[in-house]
């Protein structure tokens, strides 16, 4: 959908990433380059290693082999906290919300790395504390307004519907002011209307300058929104290219979509 920019600046790069769990090659020699301004799709059948790959990118797993670079900096061995400090934000496939905190508080935690006040600031209510709290509240409310959860700010996150919980996760990730946003199946559990709204929201974010990487099974979503797509199967990279290339690649078709007319229908 988004046009190929002429000068493509690499933002997140994976070089020869492998992750083995014993004999299982969950991710096997995968290279990837996400450039500034991309909506980068990662697709593949269940168990293809997509989420594992995301976990490697965000420091939750350390790869068996290979390196991850972010803005030219090696982040391979960094802890998830340190990766988040580099402003790489992510959401989770099976929702890891702070369920018993309100929506607003959830988003406020996203502002953690952008504020500094420590315990003594909090006890004495120093100017630093007041500035931080004001900033956190203002920023969180702004994000909630934008994502359409403003009315639910005082609801416990766990009380929301599944689709809305996904939005809270995205809101929380946005609070980091991420340079890149990694979304793990954001449309899972959403109805078609919600999916469409989410797709538009992601495109709007992209238009605002956010770089987005997304794992998604909804082909309509991926083919219409992403400008680059990485296809994984059994931990191996099949192809990295534009939606058009992915659609026409026979290997992708046979590995992922199956063969025959049905696959063709699905893509369209």
């Amino acid at each position: 959908m988004a046009e190929q920019t002429l000068t493509r600046v690499p933002l997140l790069e994976a070089q020869g990433i492998c992750k083995y769990f014993g004999g299982l090659k969950a991710v096997d020699h995968v290279d990837m380059t996400i450039c500034q301004g991309d909506i980068f799709g990662i697709i593949g059948p269940n168990g293809a290693g997509k989420t594992t790959f995301f976990n490697i990118c965000t420091g939750i797993f350390t790869p068996t082999q290979g390196r991850i670079f972010f803005c030219g900096e090696d982040i391979t061995a960094m802890s998830p906290e340190a990766v988040a400090q580099k402003r790489i934000a992510r959401t989770f496939q099976n929702l890891q919300l702070f369920k018993f905190m309100t929506v607003l508080e959830n988003v406020k935690i996203g502002c953690h790395i952008k504020t500094k006040s420590n315990m003594f600031d909090a006890i004495l209510h120093t100017p630093t504390f007041k500035r931080d709290e004001a900033f956190t509240t203002e920023k969180s409310l702004e994000i909630l307004k934008r994502i359409g959860l403003f009315d639910f700010r005082d609801t416990l996150a766990g009380n929301l519907s599944y689709g809305m919980q996904r939005k809270v996760e995205i809101a929380r990730a946005l609070a980091l002011d991420p340079k890149i946003l990694l979304l793990d199946e954001p449309a899972a559990g959403m109805n078609p209307l919600e999916t469409k709204a989410l797709m538009e929201f992601i495109q709007a974010l992209n238009a605002d300058g956010y770089t987005i990487a997304v794992i998604e099974h909804d082909m309509k979503f991926v083919m219409n929104s992403c400008n680059r797509i990485l296809v994984l199967n059994f931990g191996q990279k099949i192809l990295e290219g534009t939606p058009a290339e992915v659609k026409t690649n026979p290997e992708v078709q046979s590995a992922y979509f199956g063969k025959g007319m049905v696959a063709g229908e699905a893509i369209r």
């Binding site: 934000a89 890891q96 905190m101």
Partner: peptide, 15 residues
Amino acid sequence: ISIREDQIAAKSLGV
């Protein structure tokens, strides 16, 4: 509280 609720998520937000 975020650690109590979900440690992995807290980490992924830079806590």
